[in-house]
Design a binder for these strands. Structure first.
Lengths: 236, 236
DNA sequence: AATCAACACTTGTATATACAAGTGTTGATT
DNA sequence: AATCAACACTTGTATATACAAGTGTTGATT
């Protein structure tokens, strides 16, 4: 693992992200000014400015000339050039999640799952089931199958601390993903976890992610379709 | 209309856009370096850099430290980053479609529709409703509101021959789009058009498209969620 | 001919500085 | 009490400068 010296503006960005994600800085609260950050981190104003600027582009902050910089309204659809999965969006708003179960599964080579993950004979898969909350309401169920060859220590993670997505991103940098979106009526178990009536349509995203070494995981994300929207923004 | 003096970096951005859009600079061709642009436009390197930087974020250019800046690959970005709307996919398989109705609508400035389309006082909207088929089965309902200023001859088109999407693409080259995906229970009219039971969840995509002159159209695409999938593929 | 160090050129990060322009507060004037 | 000009503070744009770091070419050495 090559340790690259982090650029100064990323240190400031990380700091601000942490303050927001941890809930220390709430919606609409004022963020230190460029000059304040510059002094605090002993950098020039332009460097502090870059950190604020990039976070603004990512939709975490909003800025107003003369007035200052503020933590963005969490609800706002901020996504650029990406189909963001719902969990990612929640993450930015300081989400909570409960791990329901994790397991090691043996998969038959001919099963669809094995094909999707590109598994060979007698390879195994890790499975995790995590429920995501926002404001104490269940908002998304994440069922994830992970290639055990590529991420051997997956099951040892404490998914109360870190989301599967966060862990996978840190461990095996993702280079690519495919998404399939369906509208479904979820089964009883999922409905009861999400606390929705079984007649309510849900959005279901099947997302496969790749690292440079192959398919890392297949995530099945289910969310009530009336509560949450999947936004995207694209340029031709 | 207050005429604001354009910032220097936008002048450079506009110039580069024009060179690419006009076809003068082809895919992968080398773009002048920061220093070259700085001299050409009599600005500092940092200002020229900003123009290149922002166009890179928009996906028009790609940059490589040491090597230079190049015009991005046109096709790859769009197909990779696109949520393909269901009609587009059908199109590739030789689809059929029936026009159900077309109309001219007056919209109140305060209505959501007027806001979404960026309409001013007393401007009008064209409305079209087209049902798409595959193998003689209804597969998607397309309800589309079109800015009558930007596409004045919309209603004159024969939508038995050409799909609204095809026509709009030819008429006002689309530069940008936002999509919102929801899982919904469609109303009775839509269900009967799609020939599905009213308990079946549907995928509903709200897609707004822009040309360089503004919002061109708002399309509401509804499809049975169990039959059809919305696929996408993205690169981080 | 093959090798490779030196070099010119490119983008990336960072600083210090200047002025423009918008916002909200403070305090003198009415 | 109401008004509003002055002011401090904020973000936005722009410049000049320095060095880091990656790339591709050139030319001397082998």
């Amino acid at each position: 693992m090559k340790q690259v010296k982090a650029a100064k503006f990323t240190i400031i960005k990380d700091h601000i992200c942490k303050m927001i994600e941890s809930g220390e800085w709430l919606q609409h609260s004022k963020v230190p000014s460029e000059n304040a950050l510059a002094e605090q981190f002993s950098v020039s104003r332009m460097t502090a400015r870059r950190a604020l600027q990039e976070l603004t582009e990512q939709g975490l902050l909003v800025r107003s000339q003369g007035a200052g910089t503020f933590v963005a309204t969490f609800k706002s659809q901020s996504s650029l050039l990406e189909i963001r999965n719902i969990a990612d969006e929640i993450q930015e708003r300081g989400h909570q999640h409960h791990s329901i179960q994790i397991a090691l599964i043996s998969v038959d080579v001919n099963e669809e799952l094995a094909i999707l993950l590109g598994l060979k004979e007698s390879e195994t898969v890790y499975y995790s089931e995590v429920l995501h909350f926002e404001n104490d309401e269940p908002i998304q169920l994440e069922q994830r199958y992970v290639n055990s060859k590529l991420v051997p220590e997956y099951l040892q993670q404490n998914f109360a601390e870190i989301t599967p997505h966060e862990y996978l991103s840190s461990e095996a940098p993702l280079t690519e993903a495919t998404n399939e979106v369906e509208a479904v009526i979820a089964n009883k178990d999922i409905c009861s976890l999400l606390q929705v009536d079984s007649s309510i349509p849900c959005l279901q995203v099947k997302r496969r992610t790749w690292s440079s070494k192959g398919v890392v995981s297949l995530a099945i994300l289910t969310a009530p379709g009336n509560k949450y929207r999947l936004g995207s923004h694209l340029i031709f």
